[in-house]
Amino acid sequence: MSHTTLPKRIAIVIDSLSGGGAEKVMLTLAKGLQARGHEPHLLVLEPAVEHEVPVDIPLHFCFGANEHNLDSFWRLNGTVAKLKNFLTQLQQNIGRFDLFLSNLHQTNLLMTHTGVSPLYCVVHNSMDEELKRQRKLGPIAWLEMWRAQKALNGQHLIAVSEGVADELRQSTRIMPASVTTIYNPFALAEIRAQAELIPEDLPKGDYLIHVGRFARQKRHDVLFAALKQMQHNLPLILLCSNRKKAQKAITKFGLQQRVIVAGFQQNPFPWIKHARALVLSSDYEGFGNVLLEALALGTPAISTACPHGPTEILTGNLAQWLVPRRDPVALAKKLDQLLDSKPDVTDAEILSKVTLDTIVQQYLALIADE
């Protein structure tokens, strides 16, 4: 019998709980652990919270709102000492953690210096692609990312897709102690229930949807160029928080009549469910959560075949909806083809691999292996 039948106390450590994919994934995991009788604690470096946190999941802020640049070169030692002290105090008050799960670069850098164990760092994105992107932002940005990635050397890592795992194993920059693939968890029944809560501003007719930050990685420019090439003239809805930047790009492409920026939605699921198709035009992803959410709601999805994630989600019959990266013409053709054929996506193979139960068990197995 596995040790994991006893309730486990698990620390999920992350930069903040502002509206990002990694944050949402870890909240889902925390809810799943708690529903199965375990005791997850959210340890958040900075007190920024956009997501709804269930009141019965303990939330601890490690640093104050006025403490910034926690991982800067000149502050690192002091910050680590403070964090170590915080973790010691917390465990004296509530008991020892059976597992620490660290997420995102700043948190990984700090947690790997604290010496706590057992510690697993969750890698949510392509490290090579992120480093390339930082290089474009200048030498300091690149050096900070490089330093955060180097901190993973000798650590136990969890990759959110097989693609990310392969990249970590082949890396010349770091030598991990171990690499385990655990897909992101999805509370499928909850997603489907939330999709029934129709907001008043949901459009009445047919539309396409893109869900994700307005960031270079997501290549909205490729998506907008594809829209102009399409035969169908469906509107596109963007669920993203940076409205100003989005509007500027929409104007540049002359698509003001066709693209609607609906902003960040606490509940994106009705928007996704009622779309004719969800489209992802990214250069890279860690996994591609929104593709999975679309399939769970019966909405067809089209994605660029970026190195990690989408090729593991759109498999079998759904692989025909993958297109080459940075190719607006191919994307336009594929969107037109999908709108003509209305594919049925309800039997997507990936759905059975990412249920909350399955993923919770895989995380608990890390403790059993200790």
Rank of each mutant, 00 (worst) to 15 (best):
N85I: 00
V123Y: 07
F63K: 13
A368C: 01
H41P: 07
L236Q: 06
H3I: 13
L157M: 08
W271D: 12
D71G: 12
F186I: 05
Q106V: 09
S352F: 00
Q91M: 09
K228Y: 01
N93A: 14
H156A: 10
T114H: 12
K218H: 02
E370C: 07
K24T: 05
K245R: 12
E370N: 14
R219C: 14
E293W: 04
A225F: 00
E167D: 11
K244L: 13
F97Q: 04
V25L: 07
A301F: 02
L152D: 09
G64M: 13
V179G: 12
N69Q: 14
P307H: 03
Q92G: 12
P310Q: 02
T304N: 09
Q337Y: 04
P328F: 03
L33P: 03
S2M: 01
D206G: 13
M145P: 02
C306A: 07
R169M: 11
R326T: 00
N153A: 06
P58F: 12
R213D: 13
G95A: 13
V329C: 00
T28M: 00
Y284P: 03
L27Y: 14
V279W: 01
P343I: 11
V160K: 05
T4K: 06
P300F: 06
I94V: 15
K132H: 11
S102P: 04
A151Q: 08
W146G: 00
T304K: 08
I272E: 09
H308W: 07
N85V: 00
K245N: 10
S341V: 02
Y120M: 08
L366Q: 04
V55L: 08
W142Y: 15
L109E: 05
F73W: 09
L137C: 11
H156T: 06
A22D: 03
L59E: 14
C240I: 09
L104Q: 07
L188N: 02
L87I: 13
L29I: 05
V211T: 11
A294G: 15
S178N: 11
L59Q: 04
N77Q: 04
L27A: 11
A30F: 08
Q170N: 15
F264R: 07
L280F: 01
G288Q: 06
N317V: 08
G263L: 03
I367Q: 08
E67K: 07
E129V: 03
G288K: 09
S72E: 12
A277H: 04
A48F: 13
Q231K: 15
G263R: 01
L101K: 01
L318H: 03
K334H: 01
I209D: 05
V123F: 05
L339S: 08
A159M: 06
E190W: 03
T315R: 05
L292I: 15
G37N: 13
A305M: 08
F214Q: 02
D336R: 05
R9F: 10
V25P: 00
L42D: 02
G205K: 04
W142A: 14
L83P: 10
D357G: 13
I191N: 02
G254R: 06
S72Y: 10
N233G: 09
C62V: 15
T28I: 09
F264C: 01
L208F: 11
D128F: 06
S72K: 02
I209Q: 11
R326C: 00
N184D: 08
N93D: 15
S352Y: 00
G154M: 10
Q34I: 05
